[in-house]
Computed example of a mutant assay.
Amino acid sequence: MRLHTRDQAREGEKEVKQPEEKAVTKWNPSVEGYLKFLVGSKLVYDTLEKIVHEAPHPFYAEFRNTGLERSASLVEDLDWFKEQGYTIPEPSSPGLTYAQYLKELSVKDPQAFICHFYNIYFAHSAGGRMIGKKVAEKLLNNKALEFYKWTVTFPQLLQNVRDKLNKVAEPWTREEKDHCLEETEKSFKLSGEILRLILS
């Protein structure tokens, strides 16, 4: 929590330096920026889901079909924007960079990869939903995108994945666990660069 600002979490210690670190209520997003964010997010989720499906490390298979997957819902949302007459952009540097980094980590550094897996899905489930709601209020006449909807009880989905993460990490050494945690700041940085696209 210390990597958040005070606006983002009570325990936050990070100083506000970037526009996306301000409280969401103070953001001035654009539809074009939001589309860049959704496209970048889709690339990252596509990459995560493909890695888990192919399982370069066998324990990744534990995280298939968790119910947290977002790629299909993002396809629906981008199709909706197309129907409204918007042009869907190509993925930009933040999404491309993060997707490539995840591919590399997934093979050579499974503990670091799991940190990103956890942070991407769990951040979207908490702050991500709040951001989606605020952006929908400002830009989409309160339309709730599929990206922010789940078909089953959401807290149970999170608990199921948390249990799997704990099971997978149980045999790790203390050094491997610490290494996983140390990757959190990098995860926040790369995710933050995609989030910043909303304000572009």
Rank of each mutant, 00 (worst) to 15 (best):
L105Y: 08
F117D: 02
D178G: 12
E137N: 15
P56D: 04
E176A: 07
L181K: 13
E176S: 07
L139R: 05
T184E: 08
V168P: 01
T153F: 15
N160D: 12
A123S: 13
A144S: 11
T173M: 05
F154G: 05
L181H: 13
Y121N: 04
L157T: 01
E193M: 11
S106I: 00
S191W: 09
P94M: 00
L139C: 04
T47M: 04
C115K: 09
Q111H: 14
A55K: 10
E13A: 12
Y148E: 08
Q84H: 03
K133Y: 10
D79E: 14
E176I: 01
S125A: 13
K14C: 10
V135W: 01
K17F: 12
E175P: 08
E62Y: 07
F63C: 06
R174K: 13
E146N: 12
L199W: 03
F147P: 05
P171G: 01
T97F: 10
T97R: 10
K36A: 10
E183K: 08
P19M: 00
K42S: 02
H57R: 12
A136K: 01
K50R: 14
K138H: 07
E176N: 08
E49Y: 01
V24L: 11
E62S: 04
G95K: 02
F117I: 03
Y121P: 05
S187C: 02
Q111N: 14
V107F: 11
S30F: 00
L68K: 00
R129H: 15
K186M: 14
P110K: 04
A72F: 08
L105W: 02
E49T: 04
E83S: 13
I131W: 00
Q8G: 12
N160C: 08
K82G: 07
E54C: 10
S71P: 04
K164Q: 07
R10H: 13
P155T: 06
F113H: 03
F113V: 01
H4T: 11
L43W: 00
D46T: 04
A112P: 01
E11P: 08
E182P: 09
A169D: 07
Q8D: 11
